[in-house]
């Protein structure tokens, strides 16, 4: 019972430096001006195993035809300008170190109802032709996202592949209403912006596979760390914090 299939993979053998070292709980280093550091420090990473909803694999791919470029060129520029390729209203606060294995990044993103969701990711893998994020507990999606570039006989293409479950029942309900559409727009616009950066234009192909239709009911408890709900409480609590701060400053004056 032997199966042997030649496959194309990058020749990277000594890859220890490409992977993050497990640290247990996330620690945020520098907090860039304007960033809200909420729902990240002290949280753990969540993979597809720890999520609640159905398991989806979605692949967004765009050809970068007609330009002289290599996959490492694409990844280098993608890493350097990652946040700039995101759609407006979403902020990726990459630290000075940039996208490197082990770096924790704060994300403040828009969601339904005008609530700015504060969450984060860790860069778990990065090499010359790809990099991978894993999301923090409370992020809408429990799973991993891999960004890559590859060359075939036609030229170079850039790809985003997500392998995710909705992290909790709240996000699971929101997924068909808003989540899938948001994610599709997010990665489609990102790839279009990346291509435009190189002067390329074209269409993004999207492939969606539901890998597991079952829900992990044992993970329904994840809702207690839901970043959208917690961010909403934080946002609506802003006036109370402002009054408290003013009173404290008044007492100290």
């Amino acid at each position: 019972m032997t199966s042997k299939t030649p496959v194309e993979t990058p020749k990277v053998r000594d890859d220890a430096a490409n992977w993050a070292v497990p640290a247990g709980r996330l620690r945020v280093g520098e907090v860039p001006p304007g960033a809200v550091n909420l729902n990240v420090t002290g949280r753990r990473l969540v993979g597809p195993v720890q999520g609640f909803g159905q398991l989806w694999q979605k692949t967004y791919r765009m050809r970068l035809d007609g330009i002289a470029i290599t996959p490492p060129d694409v990844i280098r520029e993608w890493k350097a300008n990652y946040g700039a390729f995101w759609p407006k209203g979403n902020h990726f606060y990459a630290p000075q170190a940039g996208i490197q294995p082990g770096v924790v990044v704060l994300i403040n993103g828009e969601s339904l109802g005008g609530v700015e969701v504060s969450t984060g990711i860790e860069v778990i893998y990065a090499d010359d032709e790809s990099f991978t994020f894993m999301n923090a507990e409370g992020h809408p999606a429990a799973g991993i996202v891999t960004f890559s570039a590859a060359r075939d006989e036609h030229g170079v293409s850039a790809q985003v592949q997500v392998l995710i479950r909705a992290d909790d029942p709240f996000y699971d309900v929101m997924l068909p209403i808003y989540g899938h559409r948001f994610e599709d727009q997010m990665w489609t616009k990102t790839l279009v912006a990346l291509a435009a950066h190189f002067g390329a234009h074209g269409d993004v192909t999207v492939e969606r596979i539901c890998v597991d239709r079952r829900r992990n009911w044992s993970q329904a408890k994840n809702i207690w760390r839901n970043a959208a709900i917690r961010s909403g409480f934080y946002m609506f609590g802003a006036p109370i914090r402002w009054v408290r701060r003013a009173l404290k400053e008044g007492r100290e004056a």
Binding site: T9, D15, V49, Q57, Y125, S130, I144, T146, L163
Partner: peptide
Amino acid sequence: DYMNSGGIGLLVTLLVRANR
């Protein structure tokens, strides 16, 4: 010899099948 994040994803898929 070598495993990348795509390989991790493949193991998740295998895990789903086994659990089923």
